[in-house]
Structure formats: structure tokens, C-alpha cells
């Protein structure tokens, strides 16, 4: 087994942890924590693939774009959390449906 296969196997385990967190939790914060973990695994896979193809420059440029998107997603998610908490006093994803206009 080459080293990239081992790295991607470990990345898969990290990604599984994030998906599991998103699957079992009802808290918005934990959903975002799970999303962050999945995103970290995706970033590791991207840089690892860039190193494999000897193209780290492009991989880094793509990763910077990805980090910008991640920040926006987290900021929007936390804004929804704060709004929902102000309205209902809870951070439960099942109460987000009451935010519809």
C-alpha cells in the first residue's frame, strides 16, 4: 500500500466522524461542527491529491477558495442559530422550520 492510500484512508475516517456528528445531533452548533470536520477532511484530500499530482500550487489556490466558502457557510449557519435562539430560545434544527416567512 502506498502512502497516499493510507492518508486517504485516515481522511475517510475523519470524514466519517463529521458525517456521524451531523447525522445524530439535533443541535445547530454540532451540525456546524460536523460540517467543519467534513470540510477539513475534504481540504486534506485536496492537498494530498495536489501533492500526488505534483500540483500543489493549484491545490492551494483551490483551497483558499474553499476556505472563503467555508467561512461564509459557517457565518450564515451561526446567524441562523442566533436568530432561532432569539425567537425560540433553542438551538434545535427541528425548530428552524418556524423561521419561514
Amino acid at each position: 500500500m502506498n502512502s497516499f492510500a493510507m492518508e486517504w484512508y485516515l481522511i475517510t475516517l475523519i470524514m466519517f466522524t463529521g458525517f456521524y456528528c451531523m447525522l445524530v445531533s439535533r443541535s445547530i452548533v454540532r451540525q456546524l461542527v460536523g460540517l467543519e470536520i467534513v470540510s477539513k477532511a475534504a481540504m486534506l484530500a485536496l492537498i494530498s491529491a495536489g501533492a500526488l499530482a505534483n500540483n500543489l500550487i493549484y491545490a492551494q489556490a483551490l483551497l483558499i477558495t474553499m476556505i472563503v466558502i467555508e467561512v461564509v457557510v459557517v457565518a450564515a449557519g451561526l446567524a441562523l442559530l442566533v436568530k432561532n435562539f432569539r425567537l425560540h430560545g433553542a438551538a434545535d434544527i427541528w425548530k428552524l422550520d418556524s423561521l419561514k416567512g
Partner: peptide, 23 residues
Amino acid sequence: PAFFAELSAWARPGTGGGTIGLA
């Protein structure tokens, strides 16, 4: 791991040149 080993064999090596500013 066996699947990933096969997957890594598909990589087409790039030139690796340039800088992050250029990219």
C-alpha cells in the same frame, strides 16, 4: 486502501512550476 492505491495510480503528474501569486 486497495481502491485508493488504484486511484492514486491514475494521477497525471503536473509540471509543479509557478508560484501561488501566479496561480
